[in-house]
């Protein structure tokens, strides 16, 4: 029995779970959750150094970069210019041309500005970036992002950090039919069954942060999410039965004891 691997751009991944590095109560807790989850890629944000704070150990020293690739994000960028500059800073600071592109359109919902995301993606692709855009569960936007050269699309399941689960599985199904790059569900997952559902639909991977970092026991939740992603993916690859309205006996109807 062989599992299909996840291929994004020139990288192959065994794990289909991408994790964040935010909101953990400690770096060691984060490190343990990453380890247990089997993740091979984690997101990080790019921010100004606080020159007044006492020198601290870098969060990066808690990420085993031999096993785990870094995926910097452009979180909290509200304009094309901010997002492009943040990506350029990330490339310099982390020596990677991969970027999780976020251009936020609304501070309350953190929904992306799709037009600005497309514009920023075009610029970054021209500059040689591997662009993985966070986008609404919008099939047309996903098609356009693929057409301009994004190496994956990352539709949200629900607002970032909301834990609402998959609000529109039908849109995800349409996206899965209409694009050929990996579809990575990014944001909104709350519990393992949400993760399994996304994978059963045929999504290529999941990106999550709050669902694990915010759990009472993040390490146990990291394990649960790993199991859910693997179960959901295996279920998808195995091919589920068709739904029927009436029963279809599992045991033979013939040869039953006669009165």
């Amino acid at each position: 029995m062989q599992n299909q691997k996840l291929q994004i751009s020139n990288k192959t991944f065994h794990s289909r779970l991408i994790l964040g590095t935010g909101k953990y109560s400690s770096n060691t807790m984060m490190q343990e959750a990453h380890e247990v989850s089997g993740t091979q890629m984690v997101t990080v944000a790019i921010r100004r150094i606080d020159l007044k704070a006492p020198p601290q150990e870098s969060m990066l020293s808690y990420i085993n970069q031999d096993k785990i690739a870094l995926l910097p994000n452009t979180a909290a960028c509200f304009t094309v210019k901010e997002a492009v500059q943040t990506a350029q800073l990330a490339r310099e600071a982390l020596k990677t041309n991969w970027i999780k592109l976020e251009v936020i359109g609304d501070p309350k919902t953190l929904f992306p500005d799709v037009a600005a995301t497309l514009e920023a993606a075009k610029i970054l692709i021209d500059e040689g970036f591997v662009v993985l855009p966070y986008v609404l569960d919008d099939p047309v936007a996903c098609q356009k992002l693929e057409a301009i050269g994004c190496q994956a699309v990352m539709p949200l399941a629900a607002p970032i950090g909301s834990g609402l689960g998959i609000r529109n599985p039908y849109n995800l199904k349409i996206i899965l039919e209409q694009v050929s790059v990996p579809v990575i569900v990014d944001a909104g997952v709350g519990c393992p069954s949400d993760a399994a559902r996304a994978m059963e639909l045929g999504c290529s991977a999941l990106l999550m942060n709050t669902a694990i970092a915010g759990a009472n026991d993040p390490v146990k939740m990291a394990l649960a999410m790993r199991q859910a992603v693997e179960a959901g993916r295996n279920g998808f690859e195995a091919g589920r039965i068709a739904k029927k309205l009436y029963a279809n006996a599992s045991s033979p109807m013939e040869g039953v004891i006669q009165p």
Partner: peptide, 27 residues
Amino acid sequence: VIVRSQLKTTFLKPGDQIEIFHAVGGG
């Protein structure tokens, strides 16, 4: 953005705005 290889040859001028960034936890 000033790439690492140009740090030695990039000199400060009055009024320059220098910003220094690093990676922090994020999702």
